[in-house]
Amino acid sequence: MSLVRWEPFREMEALQREMNRLFDAFSPTTPLEGRGDGLTFIPAAEMTETPEAIQLKLEVPGLEPKDLEVEVEADSVTIKGERKSETKTEENGVTRTEFRYGSFHRVIPLPSRIENTNVTAEYKDGILNLTLPKVPEERNKVVKVNIG
């Protein structure tokens, strides 16, 4: 049996690396423009697929349609936007102002190829609904599975 020198600072460095990795996993990586603090807004997305189309629903509350930019490729959707929200209330001589600014950029890969020239979009109550029709080859695609 050999003796191994114990170095407590090496263990502290390993613990610090693990803690940093843990916090990095839960924090957004794209900083707001002009700021280096790593804070950003990432809209929640829900995708459903039918034989004819892919339905993509994004939660973007507080944004106007003019604040959103949607780019559709055959195999992915890119959504960009900027949130500018400010409220100001005055009560008993006290003014209270709250504001939130920030931009986001999200690329969502699609499970099958789509006709990006026939995409329809609807925006209502902070929800963006995209209907992405599949290319005809994807609609009629049947795969035969050999058994044994």
Rank of each mutant, 00 (worst) to 15 (best):
R113V: 01
E7G: 09
K88T: 13
L56S: 01
R35M: 07
Y101L: 04
A74R: 05
E13N: 07
K66F: 06
E82T: 05
E138H: 00
E64R: 09
T78Q: 14
T30D: 06
L130S: 02
D67Y: 08
L39S: 12
E52I: 08
T97R: 15
R35S: 04
L15G: 09
E18M: 13
A14D: 14
L39F: 05
L63N: 00
E90T: 03
E18G: 06
F9K: 10
F99R: 04
K134N: 03
E138F: 00
R113P: 00
P61H: 11
K124S: 06
E59K: 15
E137H: 06
A45Y: 05
T30C: 06
L22S: 12
N140V: 04
I42H: 13
G62D: 06
G81M: 09
D24N: 14
V142G: 03
P136M: 13
E138S: 00
A53N: 03
E64L: 15
G34C: 06
F9R: 13
A45V: 10
R113T: 01
T131Y: 06
V145I: 14
Y123N: 12
T120C: 11
E98H: 07
S103P: 03
R5F: 07
N118V: 04
Y101G: 01
Y101F: 09
P61E: 11
T89Y: 10
P28S: 10
Y123D: 05
T48G: 14
T48D: 15
F23W: 08
V143L: 13
E137K: 11
K57S: 12
R100Q: 07
R106Y: 07
F104G: 08
